[in-house]
Computed example of a mutant assay.
Amino acid sequence: MKAVTSVLFLLSILLFAGAIWNALALKRPGFYPPKQVLKKRAAALAGVGVIILLVSVILSSF
């Protein structure tokens, strides 16, 4: 169970990093995907990251 929790924590960290990357791409001029796509992508990555983080915290308490 410890390995599953560790993998979930790592996955949530990677998802948050992707959300930050997409949020920072909004500031760059001339970046290809439109800003609306980047905003939706960053929000989706952060949302899934929060859900996986909550699941991993719940699993680590057992």
Rank of each mutant, 00 (worst) to 15 (best):
M1H: 09
I13G: 05
L10V: 07
M1E: 07
I58G: 07
L14W: 03
V55C: 08
I58L: 14
A42I: 12
A17F: 03
V4K: 15
S12F: 01
G49S: 07
K40C: 04
L54M: 11
V57Y: 12
K27L: 15
F9W: 06
S56D: 08
V4D: 13
G18A: 15
V4E: 14
A19I: 04
F16H: 09
R41S: 14
A23M: 13
W21M: 12
S60C: 07
A17N: 02
L53Y: 12
L26G: 02
G18Q: 02
L24Q: 08
F16E: 00
A46H: 07
R28M: 13
F9D: 05
A25S: 15
T5E: 10
V37G: 02
L59Q: 14
A17Q: 02
Q36K: 02
L26N: 01
I52W: 02
F16V: 02
A23I: 14
A3V: 13
N22V: 05
L54V: 11
S61Y: 10
S6T: 11
F62K: 11
F9I: 03
A25K: 00
K2F: 07
A46C: 12
L53A: 13
K35H: 06
L8E: 09
A19E: 00
N22E: 04
A46Q: 13
V4I: 15
I52L: 14
L59C: 12
F62T: 08
A19N: 00
S61V: 04
L53M: 12
P33N: 01
P34C: 03
I20A: 15
S61D: 03
